[in-house]
């Protein structure tokens, strides 16, 4: 099981140095700019910029794919579904038996797939270059979230990789007791459900042990806990956020100028 959060970038890369909230702010700005439109130009520009940042992070392509494959899969599915079932009009480009794709079908499918990737990738990059501890610190220090929530979530996150090992052990334990699905799908579903339940029980027991350990270290004991680490927002972080905002606005402006910008559902 691969964790979806946590740094896979080089810690000394420029993007890893940027304040977590500046990165999340930039990713949110891109998302907000792309959600209302279904044109190819805006996402293409913003995706190009995002991809341009990629080499500076030192993230290996394999590691990125392992994390982002659900998004890629989603994008391809969206593109295919829209190409096959859409009514894009225009010249017929593919005609194989009952399958008839027009140029409009293909371009609208490609546009929607591109849009999905352009919306999601900045968020993926933000998390891939951010240490969860820094994110939790930022949530507490800048956004004033309760430490109990932020630190609790952070600690729970640490247990996620252990779930993978638990799952393997539970699956093996069932096989050793003669419990296996065989070819009966109803049985397979039942066994899977009970296996998930066992995993849940294991996770809860682990979490309650962790909660006890946190209490043993005086979690929530003092009225005014301190933070071990200061995570100030530096001028560079503001610049990063402002540049990101400017780029999203510029991309939108270019698309509007070209006449390609198109509101969703119209």
């Amino acid at each position: 099981m691969t964790a979806l959060i946590g740094p896979i970038a080089r810690a000394d890369s420029a993007l890893a140095q940027v304040h977590p909230l500046a990165k999340l702010g930039a990713a949110t700005a891109v998302m907000l700019a792309l959600l209302p439109t279904v044109d190819p130009v805006t996402p293409a520009i913003l995706l190009a910029v995002t991809l341009g940042l990629l080499p500076t992070t030192g993230i290996r392509l394999g590691a990125l794919l392992r994390r982002a494959w659900p998004i890629l899969l989603g994008a391809v599915s969206v593109a295919l579904a829209n190409a096959l079932y859409g009514d894009g009009g225009g010249r017929v480009v593919i005609d194989v038996g009952p399958l008839e794709l027009t140029a409009g079908d293909v371009s609208s499918g490609a546009t929607l797939g591109l849009r999905l990737i352009a919306i999601a990738l900045p968020g993926v990059l933000a998390f891939a270059t951010t240490d969860p501890t820094d994110l939790a610190d930022a949530l507490v220090q800048q956004l004033r979230l309760p430490a109990r929530f932020a630190v609790g979530a952070l600690a729970a996150l640490r247990l996620v990789p252990l779930l993978g090992a638990d799952w393997d052990a539970i699956r093996r334990a069932r096989r050793s007791r003669g419990m296996a699905a065989g070819r009966n799908p109803a049985r397979a579903t039942g066994i899977f459900a009970s296996q998930v339940f066992t995993l849940l029980v294991a996770a809860i027991r682990r979490a309650s042990r962790l909660a006890t350990a946190m209490d043993a270290r005086a979690f929530g004991a003092a009225a005014h806990p301190t933070t071990a680490r200061d995570l100030p927002v530096k001028p560079g972080d503001w610049s990063f956020l402002l540049v990101a905002l400017a780029l999203t606005l510029a991309a939108t402006a270019i698309s509007v100028t070209l006449g390609t910008w198109q509101l969703v559902l119209t």
């Binding site: 240490d131 952070l154 682990r206 350990a213 946190m214 005086a218 005014h224 933070t227 071990a228 200061d230």
Partner: peptide, 24 residues
């Protein structure tokens, strides 16, 4: 395994003192 709270060793040791309100 279920007594470590933080992802980095130093942060984990700092967890208790920070909860007690010790200065940075």
């Amino acid at each position: 395994e279920s007594q470590l709270v933080m992802g980095r060793a130093g942060d984990d040791v700092a967890f208790g003192p920070a909860n007690l309100g010790v200065s940075r």
